[in-house]
Amino acid sequence: TPSSSDVQLTEDAVRRYLIRKPMTTKDLLKKFQTKRTGLSSEQTVNVLAQILKRLNPERKNINDKMHFYLTE
């Protein structure tokens, strides 16, 4: 049920994380684990992709991994 999920995958939540520090796609997926949001893996990937396309965050490589970040 929706009430069992304690984390919501929203544009606001993603923005807050990316303002705080640069994150890889894997870092973001860890923040919105399916068992915590109640979404399926496919939904999570699709929703996160849509949100990232809208936010259009800056990108930089740290330790050879692409990280997204936003500035306020």
């Binding site: 796609t25 893996s41 999570t44 990937v45 396309k53």
Partner: peptide
């Protein structure tokens, strides 16, 4: 599992690569 996380990350990056 970490392999599922890897698969999801790969799928997400593939989606975003079309856009970037």
């Amino acid at each position: 599992s970490s392999s599922e996380a890897d698969e999801m990350a790969a799928a997400l990056e593939a989606e975003l690569n079309d856009f970037m």
